[in-house]
């Protein structure tokens, strides 16, 4: 338990927005910037904005989730942290699972908070906002899991890793987007439930896929 607590404390110190050592508000500001730019781009038609606003919030959340990827795992691999953990019998899977939790905590809840002002910017109503918030609650853990897996797979790439991981996230995130944003048009709970199911599956796979990817990078 003390190991998990130490790891989580270090990770949160590095990733939570506004912490002293590099945790940044940038993904949140980016998220709000997309929501702010959208009405300028499509014009101030309230019907159009209300119909499409929820989807835009989803796309903005997805793009914001990509921003921190290059800082998630690569530096710890290059600076020898994973080797030292391995020698102490702390498996890559445990580290990646804790990292997943810290990564989600440092963007999921904040994106959900930022969705409130964003909903005002794109002019969606209360019911739509409720579905967006529930969808984000169900979907952001899955986005975090995809991010962790991609970050682990691209860990060996020293340059261009950030752009490539961004590109790799997008196809994997499509199912989450289809069901999460799709719940907006159907208005049903079915989409939300499917989003949550995909999220759970991704969260369950991520520590093992990520751990295996990091070990493969070490051997190579």
């Amino acid at each position: 338990m003390t190991i998990l607590a130490s790891l989580l404390k270090r990770d949160l110190g590095r990733f939570l927005p506004g912490t002293s050592s590099g945790g940044t508000m940038l993904p949140l500001l980016f998220f709000l910037a997309v929501a702010m730019l959208y009405p300028f781009a499509v014009g101030p038609n309230p019907t159009l904005l209300a119909a499409t606003g929820g989807g835009v919030i989803w796309v903005a959340a997805l793009l914001a989730a990509i921003l921190p990827l290059d800082r998630l795992l690569a530096s710890d691999v290059h600076e020898g942290f994973f080797d030292q953990w391995a020698l102490r019998g702390i498996s890559e899977e445990v580290v990646v699972a804790v990292r997943l939790l810290a990564h989600w905590l440092s963007f999921g809840p904040f994106i959900m908070l930022a969705a409130l002002p964003a909903s005002a910017l794109v002019g969606i109503d209360g019911e739509t906002l409720r579905i967006v918030e529930l969808g984000l609650l169900a979907g952001t853990p899955g986005l975090a899991a995809i991010g962790i897996i991609i970050a682990a797979i691209t860990v060996g790439l020293r340059s261009g890793g950030a752009a490539l991981s961004g590109l790799l996230v997008i196809p994997l995130a499509v199912p989450l987007l289809i069901f999460g944003a799709g719940a907006l048009s159907t208005g049903g709970d079915g989409g939300l439930a499917l989003t949550a199911a995909i999220s759970l599956l991704l969260v369950a796979i991520a520590p093992f896929a990520g751990g295996a990817a990091i070990r493969a990078a070490r051997e190579g």
Binding site: R10, R14, S21, E79, G80, D83, Q84, I90
Partner: peptide
């Protein structure tokens, strides 16, 4: 590779390992 957090003060970076060890 010292495996110490570059942006942390040395004391804090070392205390992470002290907590594990």
């Amino acid at each position: 590779r010292p495996a110490l957090d570059n942006d942390q003060p040395l004391g804090k970076a070392l205390s992470f390992w002290t907590a594990l060890d």
